[in-house]
Design a protein around this nucleic acid. Structure first.
Lengths: 240, 240
DNA sequence: CGCTCAGTTGAACATCCTCAAGGATGGTGG
DNA sequence: CCACCATCCTTGAGGATGTTCAACTGAGCG
């Protein structure tokens, strides 16, 4: 009986049956390449809600690829304030941000999630698989998202920041083949507000207003975009 | 006579006599390695004020290393608004931000400057020189600065953002062996305000207030930090 | 059932933004 | 060399927006 369970887990850890296969490194590989990739990747781990994937200051030896669920990364300043620096969906990479070989942020699961590990030392092997390009594409997209977030934070209006956040999530969900108007929100409102650089109260008030005007529908678990075109307009709008 | 001038230029383009040698890729190389590096790097170009190093959408074939002066990078949104995404000092790398092989931002000289070019195709050769580590360190520092900027923008107070900016510039100047309290400002106030996500007027007013309280001294060309400890405090302070 | 914590709502206040006008500076042409 | 102009920067007043502090609501859980 135990044996059966173990076998089931092994199967589940295989890239060939991974639900995010189409959007991660395993994209566009033939069966032989896929098997070689599986030998390079460390079996995925299940990370319980609020458990850390890694912490700031730890030696950065791996990249992590989200397989299911959601992670957030955050940094803490000298005053002890937490700053949420990113949310990560399946297929996305985290753990790259490092300085002098140490992680410069911490990563925690906002809901029970799974992630594959890829040792940095294996990156040359990855490149030889002909998927170095995919790796760099993923890293490039990550950089691009960070730039977008930066531009988003240079806006002052709360509704514009929220819209920018929703648009970003929306695009990333479409890429996963999921509904772009149904934004899962397993993270707390505090986390979202923090990520957007506004207070919890501002976020709450603005969301409430957007629900009243039927731009959104929200509950504890998700945010539903009812008027995508309005959100799009708000996101483009800059306060200056 | 012409020959003499050409020879002088060639000498100047050599890493061995480069003023930023100690903070760029040429760091810690012996004479032989230095010569091999010089063969990989394209001779530096002088870029006149307001001239572009590259533009968004162009094929990203090279990294650029600032040799002297200062560059800014910026993006333009669909409404035509400009967003300054970074300022670059000697020794720093720009041109990495790309998506699908195209530059996602534009780079322009804010004063007459020089920059070395490094073709991406040469990066494997760079790695073989044993300075791949230095390249990744430079890239890592760049990533780190971007993260800091992100955290800076999540603050709402103009004085905190300005302080964060000055602290960042200060640290980068020290690394160059230059005075950390004398911040050159060849870029316009508009550029700085834009970079900090505040209006030109807010920047101006806040700077004026800081000058009146003798925290700073400013003129068109530079910002002098008179009370580093006050700036430090403001930078740590978060509005939330 | 009551506790706790996340989220919402309210009122007063601080800060920033907008629009507008007034300097200062650097370059150009007479 | 100086007057003029364009541009950049500074300053002012009023309105919009976000923050703070505090009270309240509601869902989840022992």
């Amino acid at each position: 009986m135990i044996f059966v369970i173990v076998q089931a887990q092994n199967q589940a850890s295989c890239c060939s049956v991974c639900p995010t296969r189409k959007v991660c490194l395993a994209n566009n590989l033939d069966d032989g390449e896929l098997q070689r990739l599986e030998n390079l990747i460390e079996p995925f781990d299940s990370i319980k809600q609020h458990k850390h994937l890694y912490r700031v200051g730890e030696t950065a030896e791996r990249h992590y690829h989200v397989r299911s669920g959601m992670f957030k990364t955050y940094a803490v300043n000298t005053s002890g304030d937490e700053y949420v620096t990113g949310f990560y969906l399946p297929g996305e990479i985290l753990g790259c941000a490092q300085n002098a070989g140490k992680h410069t942020d911490s990563a925690v699961a906002v809901e029970t999630s799974t992630a594959c590990r890829l040792a940095e030392s294996k990156i040359p092997d990855i490149a030889s698989l002909g998927i170095g390009g995919t790796l760099f594409r993923l890293l490039g997209e990550r950089e691009d998202r960070r730039n977008q977030h930066l531009l988003n934070l240079s806006q002052t209006r709360a509704d514009a920041r929220i819209a920018g956040f929703l648009i970003d999530m929306s695009q990333r969900l479409s890429r996963l083949g999921r509904c772009p108007n149904h934004i899962p929100a397993p993270m707390s409102r505090t986390d979202i507000a923090n990520y957007l650089g506004i207070t919890l109260e501002s976020l709450s008030r603005t969301l409430t207003r957007m629900v009243k005007t039927e731009i959104l529908f929200t509950n504890r678990d998700y945010i539903e975009i009812r008027q995508p075109q309005t959100i799009e307009l708000l996101g483009l709008h800059t306060a200056r």
